[in-house]
Amino acid sequence: MKPSLSLRSHYLLRSLLIAALAAYIMHLNASNSLDYYLAPHMQTLLLLCPVPLLFIAFGMLWHAIAGASGEVCDCEHPLPSGLIKNISVYGLFTVPLLFGLLLPDQALGSDMAAKKGMIYTYPNPDVRRKTEERNAPAVSGMEKHVTNDDQTAAEDIALNERFVPKDIYSVEFAELAKRLYTLPVIRVEPDIFSETVGAMDMYKQHFQGKAITVQGFVFRDGHMNEDTFAVSRFLVMCCTADAVPFGVMVRAANASSFANDAWVQIDGTIQVATVDGKETLQIQAERIQPIEEPSSPYIFTNPDSVAEFDELYSNDIETKEEINQ
């Protein structure tokens, strides 16, 4: 016995909605837009969904066209009846899909940063707990890299005395700070943005006067002077719902000529300033140049920022070793 027209229409609509959801996920991946919504480790899980969703959609479509008259399952959840119930149930899927397809993908900006509240020090302790989860060999590897480097013994001792971990959560920052301190110009790389700023903030007094280069969007509020703004990025742990605005104060004579949300590159020197009664990093800008918004505007926590630093600067380290030899 063929299913009724009402039953056909329900399963046909469900099939279309599920297929549309799978297609939307694939569209986000193909257009490199997933970074606007999810952290990389969550993207991997999401990308496992389209194929199963398409199988479900095909099953629903087959049942709508050639299935039996009964319902697909015996879960005792009746199909919605009445116009209001149907609009409510299927609207929960249709409206978000329409918003996703019709509205442009864009990054959070200064308006959202003002609502959430800009953070000028390393974010909440929950982010720092990832250091505790590392095993002992990983920490030993960090120490081995520093002590076996071709620096002189005096330089090694000076670095170890200058950057002493304050607690178990600070081991990674201390090791990263040792590496950052030896750079002629500290480039705040997007892959380890929050960890780099966190390491410098933890040992801010030692980094005063060091040259730095950083990219981000301009944020300012009503309490800032005309010669001041924050160069900012949104730190995402899982998705944009938990995004944290994370910035570094910048002082420059021409600061007022850059509007909120403008993406800039700052070249300058590190200073220490007081914001809301707390000491924080500040960059005395020597040059500010406009840049295009990066394809991945958010920053994410890195499971091993020291290993990532070594990977990013591997060519520089090899060149330095060759020169010393």
Rank of each mutant, 00 (worst) to 15 (best):
L183A: 14
I168F: 08
T196D: 06
E175Q: 14
D150Y: 09
V171G: 04
F193P: 15
P165T: 05
D149I: 00
T152P: 12
V164P: 11
P165Y: 01
P190W: 04
D167C: 07
R179W: 10
E172M: 04
T182M: 13
K166I: 02
I168W: 08
T182R: 08
E172V: 03
S170T: 02
I157C: 03
V197R: 10
E155D: 10
R187D: 12
V188C: 11
T196G: 13
V164R: 11
T152W: 15
I192C: 10
I192Y: 08
A177D: 15
R187I: 14
E172F: 06
E172R: 07
E161R: 04
V185C: 11
Q151H: 09
E161D: 14
A177G: 02
R187L: 15
K178C: 01
T196N: 07
D191K: 11
A177K: 05
P190S: 04
P190L: 13
T196M: 06
S194Q: 12
D156L: 00
S194V: 13
D191A: 15
A177T: 06
T182S: 09
V188I: 09
D156T: 00
G198T: 10
R179L: 15
D149Y: 13
P165N: 05
L159W: 00
R162S: 06
F173I: 01
T196Y: 02
E189F: 05
A158M: 10
R162A: 00
S194F: 03
P165D: 02
R187A: 11
T196E: 15
